[in-house]
């Protein structure tokens, strides 16, 4: 299953690209409309790109009234990425989406409180879980001391799956002025630089939880996707590569089949967790 990473595709302006994916994941929706950050919002780095878009979105009211119906009209399977600044904000949006015909909700858990990321994750996921019966994926940051522990916290709070990883903080300076290239200064690093970080996070979260995982981070080819599957992902998403190549989903899917077959796997998913060897972990379930 190939998805887009949240914020890396607008299905309404490029429906032909969305139709080449198995699932379209929306930009993160927050309770209130957000204009996003002042320009400059993107910069290329040596091994990736930085963005500081600032969660620009129309807010949940306009999203449900205007954006979502048009997305559903496209006939694609929709996951809605949900964000907020407190657990109750996530819950509020999940409750609003509970009766909409969407396939899943992805919680954009950013963990601003890095001193106790597990607690933060648990509170947000538990609040969302209480507000909806939809399939819930928790998208976690790799910038925590123990991704496995954050994954366990999400699983115990009722997440059905995990999305790994979000971007990591980076800074790029103008070569001449030595001032930050991005308007807000720092931004989120994505692209090839994120690939080994995503692999390590998927590997750790699979081992710790056994939950379904969407691997995200620097996938540019089918071989990269197969590696994420081997590390424990049951699906993967394309992010930065979509900016350079809107035809990437079709190409990556073909490469994935070829790469799996060349290694003796009947299907790409036959390589699931191949990097771990031995029997799979017992999936964690919510503590009642």
């Amino acid at each position: 299953m190939i998805l887009n990473a949240s914020g890396c595709l607008d299905a309404l302006t490029a429906p032909e690209v969305a139709h080449t994916l198995d699932v379209f994941v929306t930009k993160t929706v927050t309770p209130l409309p957000r204009e996003g950050n002042q320009p400059v919002r993107i910069a290329e780095t040596d091994f990736g790109m930085l963005n500081s878009i600032g969660l620009a979105n129309p807010g949940i009211d306009r999203f449900v009234a205007d954006t979502l119906p048009r997305l559903l009209d496209l006939g694609v399977s929709v996951w809605v990425s949900v964000g907020g600044f407190a657990a109750h904000e996530y819950a509020e949006i999940c409750a609003r989406l509970d009766h909409e015909p969407i396939a899943a909700i992805e919680l954009n858990v950013s963990c601003p409180n890095v001193s106790s990321p597990e607690e933060e994750v648990e509170q947000i996921v538990a609040a969302a879980r209480a507000a909806t019966t939809k399939t819930l994926y928790a998208k976690l940051s790799p910038s925590v001391p123990d991704v496995g522990a954050a994954a366990v916290a999400a699983a115990r709070a009722g997440a059905d799956g995990l999305t790994l990883v979000n971007t990591i903080r980076g800074l790029a300076l103008d070569e001449l002025t030595l001032e930050p290239k991005l308007g807000p200064g720092v931004g989120g690093l994505s692209g090839p630089a994120l690939r080994p970080i995503a692999l390590a996070a998927v590997f750790a979260a699979y081992r710790a939880t056994g939950l379904p995982i969407v691997g995200v981070g620097g996938v540019e080819t089918g071989a990269h996707g197969l590696e994420l599957i081997a590390a424990g992902a049951s699906a993967f998403a394309l992010g930065t590569v979509l900016f350079a190549d809107p035809e990437a989903p079709v190409r990556v899917r073909e490469e994935l089949e070829r790469e799996a077959s060349a290694r003796g796997f009947a299907t790409p998913l036959a390589a699931y967790a191949a990097a771990h060897g031995g029997p799979p972990p017992t999936p964690l379930r919510r503590v009642a």
Partner: peptide, 14 residues
């Protein structure tokens, strides 16, 4: 404006 994609995906050129 700086833009990563040119087709509405990245929101970089706002």
């Amino acid at each position: 404006a700086p833009m990563a994609c040119g087709y509405g995906a990245c929101y970089g050129c706002a």
